[in-house]
Design a protein around this nucleic acid. Structure first.
Length: 672
DNA sequence: ATTCGGACGGCC
DNA sequence: GCCGTCCGAATT
């Protein structure tokens, strides 16, 4: 056993003496105050608190560091926001209990962003930081830093995915400016390559880029494009389904500035990219961008807040256009980035509508069972000669429609011909179009009066198609078994919306079945959502290839696809939202909770919002036995007033300890 | 006199 | 939300 050195003994004696006599470590002399965001999600405590920094913590307790502090008699986590000479707090300050890690995980830019997001959604800072900063994994912090990447290879402009579009946006990015654009991609475009190239242009100016994809599969494709354009080490992927360890590792790589380009899904909207020059998002209408945890921020809004605050470039890309994106164009916040009509027409598929009534006329019984009109059947057969054919089928359980018990012909309303459905479980059947109850239904094909739920789903459709096209390979892709890519060979690819694999050389044709089912969902956004999914599916078809939409030829959402006019549809959609006074034309919030609590909040809100803001209260209506929901709204121009008042009303409730909690959801992603 | 509980105010 | 304190009422 070796004896301790004199220095160690002195240090040990000093520490022992201090702990025995409870003598505290002295407070540091330089910037002795730490302003801390304490992890409490109470609205009335949603502000920083000041603590004293002991000498031995001063090096580690830098802005962004995770700390433990005593708050209201309990230990809480928190983040150092800044270090100060002195506090403006009148009472006496307490010291930090410890610095959990010196890693600066909540950088000043992200702290500023979290505050802005909290304010935008009437939420609290602590809730947002929980979304922005992943849980710590101590082991990862000790790992050696990944070596710095070589400069990204220059982008070859000749093979640029951006060649069909005006050059203004990328030119501005390359000059280090912050242009903001809504990019409507030409059908068939490889957006992943376009995103990677835009990131490369940004990275070449020495700034960072953040690219978001809606789901893991698209993210993997984006990663492949980034590998090709930026190199293996030219970017880092950040996504919740990496698992906690890998996620924290990727997060740290960004926070430490060793990754200039970050790609990811929803949660990566908060990624601490150093010196941010570009934020980009593909298909902003995809519902997976909506965060399900309080305060329910949408990744699109998070990116736009970032772009605005850091004056960086922003790009919202898609084959379709969301109403929100259209609103950004209207307000002048962003400009349109779109190819000329000629280029679009040259790249677009040839889209036609086949009426549902044609299904009954289909000669082939197998085609009829698969709900294929004769024309769709012909198109598929023709398409199968030269490559894969995509068949999009709405997910099972969208709406249970009814078919004849024996012959499986769709059961139709005797008055208007609409499809029959059962509204609740085993309730009476009624028409989904005119609502009349189907009292004395009789099948026109076989005379049977009995009906049963149509099994609508990709698997069943695949079976029926297999029978209709004997000898043809049938593949299915759905949320549970997603195909990423299909080879350039004849096959029927049956997919639920959003799960469509890309085809190596494009699909030779596509059939979009049961379009009415997607339009009939009881959500005011159903048409916009359906249109987005049809554009996304149809964009996978080769230029000029046939696309058949099975549905009502007079329906405007279907006609938008035929004319390939995402911008026209979005403009019309936003006009409708304006007349209906819905988001984004109005500012709207949903208040959910116990009846008394919601009523209390609404009463307070009425007191806090000046009459000039034009507050409207709809409801409350019962959700279940315990819960009610009210909707409040103002014209968009008074949105900030409404949201601030919601936060103040919530604060007043928690200060006064009024019972019950009310969930406040600003701009709910679905409505109706 | 002592203990218990419920309401209330503050949280650095 | 949680803790500490204060006050009144019940308990010995």
């Amino acid at each position: 056993m070796t004896s301790d050195s004199p220095e160690q003994l002195t240090l040990l004696r000093d520490t022992v003496r201090r702990s025995r006599t409870k003598e505290p470590a002295p407070i540091t002399e330089t910037l002795p105050v730490a302003r801390v965001a304490v992890d409490v999600s109470l609205p009335h405590l949603d502000r920083p608190f000041d603590y004293l920094v002991p000498e031995d913590m001063t090096a580690a307790a830098q802005p962004g560091a995770r700390v433990k502090v005593r708050f209201a008699g309990k230990d809480h986590d928190g983040f150092v926001l800044e270090r100060l000479e002195a506090s403006d707090h009148d009472g006496k300050l307490v010291r930090l209990r410890k610095v959990v890690s010196p890693e600066r995980v909540l950088t000043p830019e992200i702290a500023d962003l979290c505050r802005a997001v909290a304010d935008r959604y009437a939420g609290v800072f602590a809730d947002v930081t929980r979304l922005a900063v992943p849980p710590r994994h101590a082991k990862v912090e000790g790992e050696p830093l990944r070596c710095d990447q070589p400069a990204p290879p220059p982008v070859s402009t000749s093979r640029s995915e951006w060649s069909p579009y005006p050059t203004g946006f990328l030119d501005a990015v390359s000059r280090g400016e912050g242009p903001r654009a809504v990019w409507t991609a030409v059908p068939g475009a490889d957006w992943t390559l376009a995103f990677a190239q835009a990131a490369a242009v940004c990275a070449a100016t020495g700034r960072g880029a953040l690219l978001l994809a809606p789901d893991a599969r698209d993210l993997e494709r984006l990663a492949a494009a980034c590998r090709a354009v930026l190199g293996e080490n030219g970017f880092v992927t950040l996504s919740a389904d990496l698992g906690p360890t890998a996620r924290y590792r990727a997060f740290l790589a960004a926070a430490r500035g060793s990754a200039r380009v970050v790609i990811g899904t929803r949660a990566a909207a908060f990624a601490p990219v150093a010196d941010l020059g570009l934020v980009a998002m593909w298909d902003d209408g995809d519902e997976s961008y909506a965060e399900p945890r309080a305060p329910y921020p949408h990744a699109r809004e998070v990116l736009l807040l970032r772009a605005f605050r850091q004056e960086c470039a922003a790009l919202l890309g898609g084959f379709a256009r969301s109403a929100e994106a259209a609103a950004l164009l209207e307000s002048g916040f962003a400009h349109e980035l779109i190819a000329d009509r000629k280029a679009i027409r040259a790249a677009a598929p040839s889209v036609h509508i086949a009426g549902e009534s044609d299904i009954d006329l289909a000669r082939d019984p197998a085609a009829r069972a698969a709900r294929l009109p004769h024309r769709a059947f012909e198109i598929a057969r023709e398409g199968l000669r030269s490559g894969p054919v995509l068949v999009q089928v709405p997910r099972a359980g969208y709406l249970p429609s009814l078919v004849c018990q024996t012959c499986r012909a769709p059961s139709r309303c005797s008055t208007c011909g609409g499809t029959l459905r059962r509204t609740g479980g085993s309730g009476p059947a009624s028409c989904s179009v005119c609502g009349r109850p189907a009292a004395d239904h009789r099948c026109p094909e076989c005379g049977d009066t009995r009906m049963r739920a149509a099994i609508i789903g990709a698997r069943r459709t695949a079976e029926e198609l297999g029978r209709a096209f004997p000898g043809v390979v049938v593949r299915t892709s759905g949320s549970d078994n997603m195909l990423d890519v299909v080879p350039d060979a004849p096959a029927l690819v049956v997919s639920t919306p959003g799960a469509e694999p890309v085809a190596e050389a494009g699909y030779s044709a596509a059939l979009l079945l049961d379009t009415w089912l997607m339009l009939a969902r009881p959500d005011l956004r159903a048409p916009e959502e359906a249109v987005r999914r049809w554009f996304n599916a149809a964009a996978l078809v080769r230029a000029g290839g046939p696309v058949i939409l099975v549905g009502d030829p007079s329906a405007l959402p279907l006609q938008a696809i035929v004319r390939w006019s995402p911008e026209g549809y979005a403009a019309r959609e936003i006009e409708e939202r304006r007349t209906a006074r819905l988001a984004p034309a109005a500012k709207l919030a949903e208040l959910t909770g116990p009846s008394e609590s919601v009523n209390d909040l609404v009463t307070r809100l009425r007191d806090l919002v000046p009459p000039s803001a034009g507050l409207e209260v709809l409801g409350p209506v019962d959700v279940d036995d315990e819960t009610v929901r009210a909707v409040v709204r103002t014209p968009r121009a008074h949105g900030t007033t409404l949201v601030r008042a919601l936060k103040d009303a919530q604060s007043a409730r928690t200060t006064k300890k009024n019972p019950g909690t009310v969930r406040v959801q600003v701009d709910p992603p679905s409505f109706g």
